[in-house]
């Protein structure tokens, strides 16, 4: 489990590692630690899966990925682990989660965020997910963000029309 020092290190790095020649030293000093302790704890947290990765966090929107869609799919529960992992491995998918259904209004249990530089690119990605899911796709929708109300990120205003399974 994380202790207070781990939490302080996480807190101190959430706005970014300093762009100084010895960034771990810069983080360590105000916490009363050594650079080696900070590195050892970051390594341990990474090994424990608390930290997923350490690196540059690109701003996709600024880099030209201006179109995003939250794709949602209704997958039979017994197949969601296997299919969720396949969708999560697609390199254009940035988040892929199993979430609960809320019938009758909300039957979708698999969420995958897709990003592209054009609407056509995003449409092709959605098609690729639909093909991968095949007959296990019992229904789907794509929710585009028309407005970011808090926190900057991606947006798109156009609508993808068809992600339903191809029937004959």
């Amino acid at each position: 489990m994380l202790d207070d020092i781990d939490r302080q290190i996480i807190q101190a790095t959430q706005t970014g590692l300093p762009l100084t020649p010895q960034p771990y030293q810069t983080i360590a000093e105000p916490l009363g630690l050594t650079a080696n302790e900070v590195m050892a704890r970051l390594t341990a947290m990474q090994n424990d899966g608390i930290i997923r990765r350490i690196g540059a966090v690109p701003n996709h929107y600024k880099l030209g990925y201006r179109f995003n869609g939250m794709t949602v799919w209704n997958i039979p529960d017994e197949f969601i682990d296997e299919l969720g992992q396949k969708v999560g491995q697609l390199d254009f998918v940035s988040h892929c989660y199993h979430r609960p259904r809320h019938p009758p209004e909300w039957l979708y249990n698999l969420f995958a965020m897709v990003h592209g530089k054009s609407q056509q690119a995003v449409d092709a990605q959605i098609q690729q997910i639909a093909e991968l899911l095949g007959d296990y796709n019992l229904g789907c929708d794509v929710l585009y963000s028309s407005k970011i109300l808090k926190k900057t990120g991606f947006q798109s205003s156009k609508k993808f029309k068809d992600c339903r399974p191809v029937t004959d």
């Binding site: 590692l17 762009l19 970051l42 947290m45 990765r53 690196g55 690109p58 701003n59």
Partner: peptide, 13 residues
């Protein structure tokens, strides 16, 4: 950083 191409360098949780 200054041009906003990255939001930061650091651990992703």
């Amino acid at each position: 950083n200054d041009n906003g191409f990255i939001s930061r360098i650091g651990p992703v949780i």
